[in-house]
């Protein structure tokens, strides 16, 4: 996983509420057995008409074609567990999403892919949405170490993030590797469970 330390880039505004994972990437793109190349499907139905004409979706507008940050409406990423949603965002180049709140599974999936989801209060989102709507001048800086967002006018706001998740993002850690370091604890747990709940270890 690519490390996340600082990020400087254009922020695109997406003020809709309840952007669900079916919108982020519709089902026809879930047939892949790979995790790359998914930007083709990103927000597909919002970007393309049924007969293949380009709509004027924000990420297709010249100012936002290289956006790295998305400022989104509340409850972003609700719905399905499909990790194809963060894969598609990442493939487009989005490394940070700022919203009032995120659906749990999507929020979790972001961290596994080096994407930083930031929760912010409504007033700050309103300000950032306003900044983002200024197009290619809407350059926002994220400093994960300091937990700060610096807006285009130079003002900064602090954000909260779980210490463990921060560490994993900053160091680009493989959390399977981290968990495997605790192998003996897992072994011990299984030994105890086999004893107290033997039916959980019978061959299925």
């Amino acid at each position: 996983m690519e490390k996340f330390t600082t990020l400087r880039g254009v922020a695109a505004p997406l003020p809709m509420v309840n952007v669900d994972t079916d919108m982020i990437i519709p089902k026809q793109f879930l047939k892949t057995i790979k995790r790359t190349g998914l930007k083709e499907g990103l927000f597909y139905e919002m970007r393309w008409t049924a007969d293949g004409q380009k709509k004027d979706f924000v990420l297709d507008q010249p100012a936002y074609q290289s956006a790295k940050i998305l400022v989104a409406g509340p409850n972003f990423g609700c719905g399905s567990s499909r990790e194809h949603a963060p894969w598609a965002l990442l493939d487009f180049g989005i490394r940070c999403i700022i919203s009032e709140d995120f659906a749990d599974i999507f929020y979790n999936n972001c961290f596994k892919n080096g994407i930083l989801p930031i929760r912010m209060p409504k007033e700050i989102i309103a300000k950032l949405m306003d900044d983002a709507s200024r197009g290619s001048n809407a350059v926002i800086e994220i400093d994960l170490e300091k937990q700060e967002i610096k807006g285009p006018d130079g003002g900064t706001v602090h954000f909260e993030i779980d210490a463990f998740r921060k560490k994993c993002l900053m160091e680009g850690l493989d959390d399977i590797g981290l968990t495997l370091e605790k192998k003996s604890s897992i072994d011990d747990f299984e030994t105890r469970q086999k004893d107290s709940q033997p039916w959980l270890h019978a061959a299925s």
Binding site: S80, S81, E83, P86, I105, N108, N109, K112, N113
Partner: peptide, 8 residues
């Protein structure tokens, strides 16, 4: 019981 992403 809960849903998880592919990395999980």
């Amino acid at each position: 019981a809960f849903g998880i992403g592919t990395s999980e």
